[in-house]
Design a binder for these strands. Sequence first.
DNA 1: CAGTGAGCGAGCTTCCGCTTGACTT
Length: 766
Amino acid sequence: MAENLVIVESPAKAKTIANYLGKDFNVVSSFGHVRDLSRKKLGIDIGKGFSPEYEVPDEKRKVVAELKKAAASAKYVWIASDEDREGEAIAWHIIRVLGLDAANTRRIVFHEITKEAIERAVANPRQVDMNLVNAQQARRVLDRIVGFEISPVLWKKVQPSLSAGRVQSVAVRLIVEREREVIAFTPESAFRVTARFTLTGSSGDGVIGAESTRRFTTQKEALEFLKVCAGARFTVSSVNIKPGKRSPAPPFITSTLQQEAYRRLGYSVSQTMSVAQRLYEGGKITYMRTDSTNLSKSSLAAAAAAVKQQFGERYSKTRQFRTRSKGAQEAHEAIRPTYPDKESITGTQQEKRLYDLIRKRMLASQMADAEIERTTVVISAEESDVNFTATGEVVKFDGFLRLYGEISEDEKQNGEAPAMPPVKEGAELEYESVTATERFTSPPPRYTEASLVKKLEELGIGRPSTYAPTISTIQNRGYVAREDRPGTPRESRVLILKGDDIESEVKREMAGKEKAKLFPQDIGMIVNDFLADNFGDIIDYRFTATVEEQFDNIAEGNEEWTGMLERFYSKFHPAVEKSLAKSEKKTGERLLGNHPETAEPVYAKMGRYGPIIQIGEASDEVKPRYAGLLGGQLIETITLEEALELFRLPRTVGEHEGNEVIAGIGRFGPFVRYRSKFYSLRKGVDDPHTIQLDRALEVIAEKDERDSKKVIAEMGEYRVLNGRYGPYISFKGKNYRIPSGSEPEKLTPEQCREIVEKGDKRKRKK
DNA sequence: CAGTGAGCGAGCTTCCGCTTGACTT
């Protein structure tokens, strides 16, 4: 038995370290925290100095038992959890849960997993830092109090099962406020003038694309300018060549990896994390939850060697980046390939692409700046004081761009800045065309998952391990949804001057088209407004930064952690009491106007099952009429006309064989109903408002046909069915997968029974 | 699962951060 037991947080890390430490060390993992506050109860005795009641959760029992056993047979226990607030607390909890003796327990830390770093750590053990542990306890207890005291207020005042918290509520607030900016935005248009010039005569040849230095607010002004341009003599009035350079971005941390994987590969935040997790477990990359851009010495050397080997000496430049994010705890390295010289890996397509991105970003960060020559040409005509400018870019030395090109939003739209033909001052030009295009200003952009992470990180809210879960939480609670929008058609006017003729055109474009953007939902807006009214301090963007400062004070030993909580709670708890004392329930009710025929009031508000329109006031005599809002409609913005439109459904389409055919829109979209069976209508194909009986019957027949094919075979209680994931067996309300290789049509009842029994066994193992 | 609800009441929901499974009928 090994004399030494080393406990780290992650099993993948344990495996690597074991290789460096050799036979005398048994390296095991705690799988993160081993205990926490009770899941059900508040778990804090506020009256007794905020004393926390910790429990080992069920799923951690096994790990703890194994750790205990391993510790009992070791002479020395080394706890090598991360060197940050959470890591220190993990170490302390392990000591308490395992009942370890301080005398033979050693706390060690390392920031990178290299032989040298680990040997240095082992040579310098220390004790658990209780100040740091207390800072974590303060953080934990504060988050629990905020979450577990505000959420029940929401259950009473808004809706059951809702939640609020220091991180998620700010995330929702960002999205709600951005949406309101978009709603309040009115686009303005102006005419942007571009021209294509050709060099003439002795000036050489080539084409230059240029843009006017002025924009014109009205079509009339734009037209007048084009008239001035017609027949004007254009010359190059100045040529300015400026050298410039571009530097590579730092290697990835969690938030930048999520952003780039979204931008370049289209991965969602959670997708990126799970692919990265697999790469990490396979030993292909370093740890993927990190806020540090630091690179280990050995990886810098490996990267330099790889760059020199692939591109030559001139391309290599060793750099170390300073971490810039707020509140970074820097317990790990940047995300990089374990072996930077390894160009590709085996794995799924997704894994290969993400690895490639991580590797290129890291190697590029160790490459030389790109050298660029930017040419700006000013073109003018005597007839007008409005000039044209053209810019061209020539890459003199590509440096890191060779490996990791940039894609800015501009470049995505316009492509690379065009190359410029060589021109001299005074060169004469002729226009091929001059085009005035009406352009509209855009509202501030809605958040994507990735840009929300970026914003949260800027505000210092949340940690690398929580970005992805937070985004899931606010979607699971129904506060926000990731949606596409087709946009609305908009006309843009275009004037084109060619020769002496000016033509006008109207271009149709889609305004406000969105893909995978985060949209607030009604319940998110109502909860946000409720929190803003009652708990403004908590959802203030600076709240986390303020408490983080206090946690830092505790960590440095300058403040008692219970004192800090005392001060916080003495202000926070009265706000909870006050919000409970207010009797009204928040439904976000909004009066849209009065019904044009009956003059009854029409309201938009939150119902038990979602947002609804209500016509009429509820009383003993009057029973109001209700209709649900459609996807994309908001209580805040729906108009009276749109609201009344909703009452045209459900409608009777007609009668077939003595039964009514009804069309409507339900929780899962538009449908027709026939003999109490529902048939979904495809968006963009059939509209429940207008669908006719013959078409409705077609839809019904199609689905009945599909359903009849659903049953492959029926053998008493066993039914072989066709499902979303292929054929399966249905037995007593439970479903079972059919092993691959067997033909579902030819299954016998005996084979079915076997499959079901095997399936049940698998389930029971869990 | 396809409507926005009788009445009453018990029981439930919830945080953030550290980790990885199990599970895809």
